[in-house]
Amino acid sequence: PIATKWPAAHPDRLQLYSLPTPNGVKVSIMLEEIGLAYEPHLVNFQTNDQLSPAFLSLNPNNKIPAILDPQGPDGKPLALFESGAILIYLAEKTGQLLPSDAARRYETIQWVMFQMGGIGPMFGQVGFFHKFAGKDFEDKRPRDRYVDEAKRLLGVLEQHLEGRAWIMGEDYTIADIATFPWIRNLIGFYGAGELVGFDKFPNVARVLAAFVERPAVIRGLDIPKRPA
């Protein structure tokens, strides 16, 4: 059913259904990094595409991103949602950006889960209370709760990145792809850098700067194109 709303020009390629949000660009950046052929489709929230029967046939949770890989395991099509799961799948499919050593593989997945369970939800709440409707609430305790947790999470990452080029040391991995779009969004789109005291996290800032300079990241941050 997804193809009725978003017809594939190249049905032999992996199909990406997304929007350039922090979660969405994780997958476009990953695809650009690994060089896997794919076709992006814009899921426009302005017209509630994510609630359409066609999209819900692929992702009943009505969130982006989602993929449909015509060449999934055993050569059979695979539909997949949840950005962290997609990152792990693409890494294992191509043998890239996820260590083959078992211990380091699980350590990398650990940091992906750290982003999925902590950084993403908490930074998103900071964005709501700081930039969007939450800023009008007179009671600032909900905002401060999420700001404090965002600071704590940044502190965990700051300490971990001391002496490391990337989250897993010298190796750039899916943990970085999962994490740094959200940090970029926190201080950029949400404008919450001063609120969370971002200048107190120089290691995080250093690695973020290296991340956004990567050619694949520059391309992936703009895929799919936002609606006009």
Rank of each mutant, 00 (worst) to 15 (best):
P20L: 03
D136I: 04
R152T: 07
P121V: 11
K200Y: 02
G155W: 09
I64R: 04
I109H: 02
P202W: 05
Y172C: 06
Y89H: 06
V196F: 03
T21G: 04
K135D: 08
H160F: 13
Q125W: 12
E82H: 09
T108F: 03
I167W: 00
E158L: 01
P7F: 05
E92K: 12
L186N: 06
Y146L: 01
M116T: 14
R219S: 14
R105D: 09
F137Q: 11
I67Q: 02
A103D: 13
F211T: 10
I218K: 15
D171F: 02
R164Y: 08
A150C: 14
E33W: 07
H130V: 13
G35E: 04
P22K: 07
Q125I: 11
G197R: 14
A37T: 07
A66E: 10
F81R: 10
E39K: 03
G188K: 04
T179F: 06
K63H: 09
R105E: 06
E32T: 00
F114P: 01
R184D: 12
H10G: 08
R104H: 09
I119R: 08
D148G: 15
A216Q: 11
L154R: 11
A175L: 09
G124F: 08
R105I: 06
N23F: 01
A205G: 14
R105V: 12
G72Y: 00
L154V: 09
H10S: 14
D136Q: 15
T21D: 12
I183E: 04
G72R: 00
L14I: 00
N203L: 04
N23E: 02
L98D: 03
T108S: 04
G155M: 04
D49S: 00
H41G: 09
E138I: 11
L153S: 08
P40N: 04
I119M: 01
L36R: 13
L157Q: 12
P121C: 06
V27T: 12
A79V: 00
A216V: 01
P181Q: 09
I34M: 02
I218C: 10
R105W: 05
G188E: 12
L221I: 08
I88Y: 01
V25T: 10
L19V: 10
S28R: 02
N23R: 09
L19H: 13
L36D: 01
A192L: 00
D176K: 01
G117D: 09
V25P: 02
P181T: 03
F132Y: 15
A3N: 13
Q15C: 02
K76W: 01
Y146K: 00
E213F: 02
A210W: 07
D74A: 14
